[in-house]
Amino acid sequence: MMFGNTIQTLERSLNYSSVKNQTIANNISNVDTANYKAKQVVFKNVLDNELGNQFEAKRTNSRHIDFGSNSGAPYKIMTNQSTTYNHNGNNVDIDKEMSELAKNQIYYQAVVDRLNGKFNSLQSVIRGGN
């Protein structure tokens, strides 16, 4: 395609931002739920680096799925089990969640603007530069 992998990268960025927004909204909606633990979206490569790639699957057949493959989304949703902020066992920090929501909205809008710019360029080329 004309833009190389740019459109696919922007699509993945929008998907990431959408999942992050859903995760934040879920955390906010459960701010008063007893024993609810906040979730966050993290990139797989960051998680793999933290774990030191210490897990290795043994494949006894070439048709078995390789656990080390990078298929699927480049992010994971992780639950923070290590903290408790409220007396009911909940660990949602509403100020942190609102801050993350605002940052994610700015990120999402920037990606949408970039995608619009790519399509406007394509439209300009189709029209002959007018």
Rank of each mutant, 00 (worst) to 15 (best):
A34N: 05
L101R: 01
V111I: 15
R114Y: 05
S18C: 00
N120Y: 09
S69C: 06
V42A: 13
Y108M: 13
N104P: 05
E50H: 04
I106K: 02
R63G: 00
N15K: 13
N61H: 15
N70L: 11
E11P: 00
T84S: 15
F119Q: 10
R12A: 08
Y108D: 02
G117R: 08
E11Q: 14
Y36P: 09
Y107E: 04
S18L: 12
L122H: 04
Y107Q: 07
R59T: 11
T60A: 09
S18V: 01
G89I: 05
V19A: 12
N130A: 11
P74V: 05
S99Y: 07
N130P: 00
V125H: 06
I94H: 06
I7C: 03
N86F: 11
R59P: 02
F55C: 00
N91P: 08
F3Q: 09
V111N: 07
I7Q: 02
T84L: 05
R12D: 10
S17V: 03
N35M: 07
G89R: 02
Q40I: 03
S121T: 13
I24G: 06
V46F: 08
Q123I: 11
M1K: 09
A38Q: 12
N91I: 03
G52M: 05
V112F: 04
L47P: 00
T83W: 11
T60H: 13
T60K: 12
K44N: 14
N5L: 05
I94P: 05
S99Q: 07
I7R: 02
G89K: 02
E56F: 05
K118W: 00
N90L: 10
E97A: 07
N53I: 00
N104L: 05
S121R: 07
K103G: 01
L14P: 04
M78D: 04
N116V: 09
T84V: 15
T83V: 11
K20V: 05
D113W: 01
I65P: 00
Y16D: 04
S62W: 06
L14E: 03
L14F: 06
I65D: 02
G4W: 03
L115S: 08
S124Q: 11
D48T: 08
D113E: 14
T79R: 15
N61K: 14
N15Q: 14
Y85F: 15
Q81F: 14
S29I: 03
N116S: 15
S121A: 13
T6C: 01
N27A: 11
N61T: 06
A25P: 00
S71E: 12
E97K: 03
S62Q: 12
R114L: 13
N53T: 00
N80W: 02
S13D: 04
